[in-house]
Write a protein that binds this DNA or RNA. Structure first.
Lengths: 203, 203
DNA sequence: CTTTTTGTACTGACTGGTCAGTCTAAAAAG
DNA sequence: CTTTTTAGACTGACCAGTCAGTACAAAAAG
């Protein structure tokens, strides 16, 4: 009796994630009502509470779900570069591209993530911390490898540089989406690549 | 309208800004109640409504007030460098430092600004657009001057590079505050300066 | 085969509490 | 005297979470 429709619940949850992500990105967590989420997902309010303990729990699982996708995408970009025998700088470049592609595909999720990341005293603070660490660690790993094999300067501060690179991509991409949507992903990628390769100042 | 009474109102408004900024940074706009703001500011609820038309209007004016401070700080960093006869790259470096100092001083404001910047469909969307443009324009101006006098590569895309630089500073600084508060402002400045000067990958 | 039971997924009206904004009368400040 | 602030009661809309009940399919019983 049990194994029959695990699929059905999964589908319902997916619909709820999709409904919640855009609403929360637009209006914020508190301003988004459970009734709205249910309505947009095309289910009854009770279904939300059948599938999730509370509004917060729905949000936390959404967070985990989304960052999981991002981390997987970054990691696979780095691995593919390595398999192809590329340099670590090429791997960073590939990760910038993967990051941009992710944000292009899930702009609402990115928006919501950025909006919540630095909030203190929130129920999901712990979840965010874990999930952030997973994503940043992927970038730090590649930086570390690059310093290790002499490709990158030993002067660099790995955690701070990783944060700066992630920030650069995040903000440039959100700005692109919000204020310069006519630009192509290649334009944005080139601009960021130039900064990474240090060809902004100097020669 | 008299300057005497303007002073008293001004002081009350200032107290309300300070109370609102931390509360909204911590919990978000919707989750912050007017009663809380009034209580933390040490004024009666009626005073909030005597001074501001609504909760949203208080928030919008807070936004204008804060970004005004930031823009002034960035602009004066750029001007001081120019007066000293510094290069445009030095001006950018000085602006990074000014940005970090601002975020160090007003972390709550920065948090709240980032959280709201890319939200769509909000009442204060128009205010944010204007206020963002003012700040980014300061960076774009310096980039333009740098390209003009040959200091910076002609390849660079000014709006995208400006957004990326602002993002780099914003995210690195917030991450510093939230996850690596033991680091000094000089550490953070060095890490970002290295990226700006292109000394991360090779040299 | 047919009937009955059981578990799962979902429904939507309802409730108890919360909060933006209003109002008042009176006091403090200038 | 005018402007600003106070204290707090009040209202009406809104909303998270609950709960009794429906739908339906798989399994157990007859």
């Amino acid at each position: 009796m049990e194994s029959s429709s695990t699929t059905r619940r999964q589908a319902t949850r997916q619909k709820l994630y999709e409904a919640a992500v855009t609403l929360i990105a637009e209006k914020g967590f508190s301003a988004t009502t459970v009734d709205e989420i249910a309505e947009r997902a095309g289910v009854a309010k009770g279904t939300v509470y059948y599938n999730f303990k509370s509004k917060s729990e729905l949000f936390e699982e959404l967070l985990r779900h989304g960052v999981g996708l991002l981390t997987a995408s970054l990691r696979s970009a780095a691995e593919e570069t390595a398999e192809r025998g590329g340099t670590r700088v090429e791997a960073l470049d590939a990760m910038i591209r993967a990051g941009l592609a992710f944000i292009d595909r899930y702009p609402a999720f990115t928006q919501l993530y950025v909006a919540e990341l630095w909030r203190t005293n929130r129920a999901w603070q712990a979840t965010l911390l874990v999930v952030r660490q997973e994503a940043v660690a992927v970038v730090e790993d590649v930086l570390r490898q690059g310093v290790g094999n002499g490709e990158l300067s030993e002067e660099i501060d790995i955690p701070l540089t990783a944060a700066a690179l992630v920030g650069m991509v995040l903000v440039a991409a959100l700005d692109w989406q919000a204020f310069q949507p006519e630009r192509s992903i290649d334009d944005v990628h080139s601009a960021l690549s130039l900064l990474l390769h240090g060809r902004v100042s100097g020669h």
